[in-house]
Amino acid sequence: MKDLLKELGSFIRTRGFKGSGQNFRKIEDDYVFVINIQGSRHGDVFFVNLGAQPAFVPAEGDVALHTIKEHECIMRMRVGNEWSWSLSGESVSDLTSAIDAAQSEFFGQVRMLRTAISEDTVEQLLQKFSTGTTHARAALHLSRAALALGRRDSAAALVEYGLSIAGDRAAGLIHDLRAVKIALA
């Protein structure tokens, strides 16, 4: 396990990420990209998680961007399903290829957020940027991004959509959506 984690860490750092252990970050322009290696509860497998946080959108819990972890990012995805700690040789190569492909596609998509907020409909935004979360929570994050970018009409449409689909028990989410709505007034 430790040898594989060390090998993955070395590979991830060659892609411009900084970090050690299980968390690696890279800051590009006004985005923070995170790769996390998460061990399973059972100990025999692990997961590779990607997170992206635009600096112009508040992070979950207002965490500092230089220490943000994948689960605190507003956009997240998993690379494949689960991976065995006993990977070796060709299987490690398959994993590193999967990480390369997934991070390139996912982080590339996130880099298009500014343009998408300006051009896309609510439905298109949710299709592109709701991976790893619910549509209601994605609507909150995207409304905050639209507000920060001065796209008030998009922000308002995203808030209304989020409020229309948030469940009755999503009190915190509803509160946060209403806070964006108040900021738009």
Rank of each mutant, 00 (worst) to 15 (best):
R144A: 13
E105F: 08
I74F: 01
L142W: 01
Q103M: 11
I37K: 00
K128H: 08
M77E: 15
G16C: 10
D3Y: 09
E60H: 02
L5W: 07
G89E: 05
S91Y: 08
L184K: 03
M1P: 10
I74R: 11
I74L: 09
A145R: 00
G9A: 06
A171R: 11
A156T: 13
S104P: 02
G19T: 06
A145W: 05
A98V: 03
T131G: 11
A98D: 10
E119I: 08
I117F: 03
F129K: 03
S154D: 11
L158V: 12
V48I: 15
R78N: 05
L142Q: 01
F24M: 08
D120R: 13
K26I: 06
H66Q: 12
Q103E: 14
A55N: 11
G19E: 09
R13T: 13
K69N: 11
C73N: 00
W85E: 08
G172V: 05
N81R: 13
H71S: 12
D30K: 12
N81F: 10
L50P: 00
S20Q: 14
A136K: 09
K181T: 02
K6Q: 12
N23P: 05
I12C: 04
S10V: 11
R137A: 11
F46K: 04
S143D: 01
E160A: 14
R137P: 01
D168V: 07
T96C: 02
G172E: 10
F11P: 00
F17S: 06
V159E: 07
T96K: 07
L8T: 02
L126R: 07
F56L: 06
A170E: 14
G80W: 01
V48E: 02
W83I: 09
D153R: 15
Q103F: 03
H42R: 14
Q38G: 04
D100K: 12
F106D: 00
Q22F: 10
V110Y: 01
T121Q: 11
S143Q: 02
E70H: 04
R15Q: 15
H135V: 08
G39L: 09
G132L: 03
D153K: 15
T121F: 12
I182F: 13
I37M: 06
R137M: 09
S164T: 05
F106R: 00
Q127N: 14
I99T: 00
Q38Y: 08
I182D: 13
L95R: 05
I182R: 15
V79Q: 05
D176T: 03
F17M: 07
S91A: 12
K181S: 14
F106Y: 13
R78I: 01
A59G: 09
L95Y: 04
S88R: 10
Q124T: 11
Q124G: 13
T134Q: 03
I117C: 02
A171E: 12
V159A: 08
F56G: 03
F24Y: 15
L50I: 01
F11A: 05
A185I: 08
P58N: 03
R178M: 13
